[in-house]
Simulated scan of single mutants.
Amino acid sequence: MSHPLFTEWAAPIGTPELRAMYSDLLVSRRIDAEATALQRQGELGLWAPMLGQEAAQVGSARALRGDDFVFSSYREHAVAYCRGVDPTQMLRFWRGSTHSGWNPLEFRMTTPAIIVGAQGLHATGYAMGINLDGSDSATIAYFGDGATSQGDISEAFGFAASFEAPVVFFCQNNQWAISEPVRLQSRQSIADRGRGFGIHSLRVDGNDVLAVYAVTKYALQRAREGSGPTLIEAVTYRMGPHTTSDDPTRYRSAAEDDEWKAKDPVDRVRRLLEREDAIDDTLLAEAGAEADRVAAALRKGCLGTVEPLPLTLFDDIYAEPHTLIDEERQRFAHYLDGFTENAS
């Protein structure tokens, strides 16, 4: 279906690009499944599954330029994959093997933000800095529908609107903020919240990878040309639990799950490729092989992780030596020595 405004923004996506997106979706889903399995086997402390949200993430991530900066929540595994992050690095955070997981400057993407909504402020501040630098890059802040009930997001909206910051607020409305349905959080659409701050706001089918790509590309261009922030509400669904410590069967029905499974974003792209006679055994074999390769490397990297020594907890806190950190390191070392003395 064509759209008078957004169809042109999806024009760069021809058959080769759509086939590549299909591969991205399959590999991202496999990363998620493998990480979930590793958590169930006791190799990760926790994992936040993204099953069902792949199109929202892949479509938006592929719309970004290399110099744009991504500010993520804790569920953007497909975005990280599209930005070139080694999946093993994604897991180190959840295994407790690192403070963060990867170098944000290398991939132009922050590591998972556990404080709900905080990344909205970070993205806005960075975007205001972009304006001061006179650059034409942009930032994008990912968050869920639940985060829109946090004060940090409202504050970010206010600053971004007032200072016309080149930021795209990307809300993945997956219908559930843990056990609370979105209808309980907001009587109006999430997009309406942005309009209340004077932010250009849009709703998009978050399970349509091409629609997400087009809308994100459009929003990024608005940011680059000085038209200020945009809020995108990508309407999607979290097929799995909020995290691996959650049991979604306690608060939502199987009928609701079945309704959304019929809108599976990966299946939709496959059906489109079939309709365009653009899917073949070669694509399926190559995408499947890549998913297998990534999953095997992810598992090997996770199990082969060298756990850090306790005192490395104080490394990489400040760029320069700091007396407070030195004091805390000494006190913690003394505490650890107490265990050695007791053991002897």
Results as ranks from 00 to 15, higher is better:
216 T>V: 07
95 R>C: 10
136 D>S: 08
318 Y>A: 11
128 M>I: 06
27 V>G: 02
86 D>M: 10
201 S>R: 04
199 I>S: 02
199 I>W: 05
306 V>T: 15
325 I>G: 09
247 D>Y: 12
142 Y>S: 08
114 I>N: 09
99 H>R: 13
71 F>K: 10
201 S>Y: 06
87 P>M: 11
40 R>H: 06
128 M>D: 01
312 T>D: 11
46 L>C: 10
206 G>W: 01
60 S>Q: 07
68 D>V: 00
150 Q>C: 12
20 A>M: 09
26 L>D: 04
74 Y>Q: 05
86 D>S: 11
43 E>D: 10
287 A>T: 08
88 T>K: 09
74 Y>T: 06
89 Q>Y: 08
139 T>Q: 09
214 A>N: 13
74 Y>V: 09
298 L>Y: 00
11 A>T: 12
50 M>Y: 02
179 S>R: 04
108 R>P: 12
287 A>R: 08
67 D>K: 03
151 G>Y: 10
230 T>Q: 04
182 V>H: 00
144 G>I: 07
60 S>L: 07
171 C>P: 03
155 E>G: 11
41 Q>D: 13
81 Y>A: 14
79 V>I: 15
35 A>R: 00
169 F>D: 05
96 G>M: 07
205 D>H: 06
81 Y>T: 10
61 A>R: 07
159 F>K: 10
52 G>W: 00
86 D>C: 10
313 L>D: 11
163 F>D: 06
331 R>G: 04
84 G>C: 08
134 G>S: 06
131 N>G: 08
295 A>C: 00
3 H>A: 05
77 H>F: 11
318 Y>P: 05
25 L>W: 00
24 D>A: 09
118 A>I: 03
272 L>E: 15
199 I>L: 06
145 D>N: 09
50 M>D: 08
291 A>E: 02
245 S>H: 15
115 I>C: 01
20 A>R: 13
44 L>K: 01
32 D>P: 12
323 T>D: 14
121 L>C: 11
291 A>G: 03
342 N>A: 14
73 S>K: 02
21 M>Q: 11
202 L>Y: 06
307 E>V: 03
98 T>H: 13
279 I>F: 05
